[in-house]
Write a protein that binds this DNA or RNA. Structure first.
Lengths: 221, 221
DNA sequence: CTGCTATCATACCAACCGGTATGGATAGTA
DNA sequence: TACTATCCATACCGGTTGGTATGATAGCAG
């Protein structure tokens, strides 16, 4: 069914410049190609032949840089999580002084961008789909992506006592989780074609919940 | 790596009773076995030989009931979603009259059970992981599982105007999404071994958000 | 008893898999 | 110029894949 494609876009892959100068570039070629093929096909359905074709490289070259398919997969997941997503959290401190409505808007905007990035949706599918076979990779994803965002939101609520949040970590989870689950069923699972729920509606509801009842919270029990 | 197991639990599979009476039972044997193997290994890593062994059936018998691997996969996903999860929503009407705190407790309890069911976690991994290759199956899952639960919560908030929920669907999503995303990163991705966040904390925070600020909501903007 | 259908066991198929071997071409280094 | 390391192309390996063919066995309907 999924027969080996005759590698249609192949000849233009190897960098024409500095082809032999830097031996590191071969590895990068392989990683870049592997990212594409793994994200598109998943782990098991990805063949090393296809990765080699996509990289414009012979199969043996891959095995001179990576021990086997599993190590190549681990390398590309680490590349995608640690080295890329790390950069996204450089500008976090100024967020702490924002008004709650603005802060939630910022989170919302960040998720809106992620939700429309097909490659991020594929990474999410891959992490969830392979999380039982590769639990250590799922752990990397949790640490570098999920907990990072959650800690940021937790710190925000901790530094805003006027919001009367009794459990800042739980509140951070509700905030982030609302957007993550929205991405999951609207985009990853394709639910927006069945019923659309706009990010803005979730954002507005969250703002109302967090801000409007702030001074009356925790009085009942 | 994953060599063909020699079908250790094989001889006790075929029903000793009414073996020939009901031709439907063969199909059920196959579906039951396929559910197990697909959930454990994913789509691509599942081999028809292994399904046949698990079912105590010859491979050709599978192909006399299902056109190919894809159709078998579709059949087992439909079995898992439509025919099983449907039953879980028979006792919904009495929920509408519950107090908000009790209602949220009920939702929380339902998710707690799901979170500790390894087979449900595997179904979730499978649906998310294959959602790009099998979008129509993801749609079934969205309709029968996700939207069903969401409509229930939406109806609840609609029938409780004293809670002052301006957008009941968004509120329902925040409620359900908080639990779904908790299941995702705590259980599916194994994050609870890195940092535990108890369901009860999320439940309590949700109750506080929804109930404590009810009469003061929507006055600010 | 006579088909008919469903299943059995086994063997087979071409294609593809992950991974390796060989041997030649090319480049940087000394 | 000689050495070394990298990469090329190709071919190969045993094993597995989804799927089929053959021919035997057994139960059921007429």
């Amino acid at each position: 069914m999924t027969a080996e494609l005759p590698s249609n876009t192949n000849e233009l892959k190897p960098d024409t410049e500095d082809k032999r100068a830097h031996p590191r570039s071969k590895r990068d070629q392989i990683v870049t190609a592997a990212i594409k093929v793994f994200l598109e096909n998943g782990y098991k359905a990805t063949s090393m032949n296809r990765v080699a074709d996509q990289a414009g490289v012979i199969k043996a070259t891959i095995y001179s840089h990576f021990k086997d398919k599993e190590q190549l997969f681990i390398a590309i997941i680490e590349e995608l999580t640690i080295k890329k997503i790390d950069l996204n959290y450089e500008d976090i401190e100024p967020l702490m002084v924002l008004a709650p409505e603005v802060f939630i808007d910022q989170i919302s905007n960040k998720f809106s961008v992620l939700m429309d990035d097909p490659d991020y949706l594929r990474l999410f599918r891959l992490m969830v789909g392979e999380s039982e076979r590769f639990p250590e990779l799922a752990s990397i994803y949790v640490k570098t992506v999920i907990l990072r965002g959650m800690d940021l939101a937790t710190a925000y609520f901790d530094s805003h006592p006027e919001l009367n949040i009794a459990d800042s970590a739980a509140m951070a989870h509700i905030c982030a989780g609302s957007f993550v689950s929205l991405m999951t069923w609207q985009q990853v699972l394709g639910g927006k074609k069945i019923r659309t729920l706009e990010v803005e509606r979730v954002t507005k509801m969250l703002k109302t919940l967090i801000c409007d009842g702030a001074q009356h919270r925790g009085k009942n029990q």
